[in-house]
Amino acid sequence: MRSSFAILILYLLFLVQASLTPWWPDLVLLGLIVVSLHENRLTSTLAGGFVGLCLDATDPAFMGSHVFTLAATGYGVAVLRTVFYRARWATSLFTGLALALKWAVIGLLGVGFPDPAALLVSSVLTLLLAPLVELGLTRLLYNRCQPA
């Protein structure tokens, strides 16, 4: 139930993201990282794959790139969070790593690199917003719940 609700929230974030310009923060990525910090590996990966598929559907030229990066991000965060004690700064760290992975994959695969200015602004905003989103979504979804 809790996992379904988390995926629903991610889908809603995708709907919001789909109506924003590339300059806005990556809300889907932030939501996925928060979900992955609390869900198990499989749920995190499936959630990443699902929202990745949603993002790919909006632009078929990128088909598969978002599925790969977001599923890998979900899985990676779910694995890494068990390695060390999860402090507040961990969210920003995971966000930075995920952003680097996402744009490196898109750049390396040659499916097109967005406007560097938009990328920079969006990434900075995403990083700045990470602690706030973590706080808000954790309270909304995982209040008084232990990580899976």
Partner: peptide, 15 residues
């Protein structure tokens, strides 16, 4: 299963 999902992304990319 997680690796399978990630691999699915790669397969989609290679289509």
């Amino acid at each position: 299963t997680s690796w399978l999902v990630i691999a699915l992304g790669v397969v989609l990319l290679l289509l």
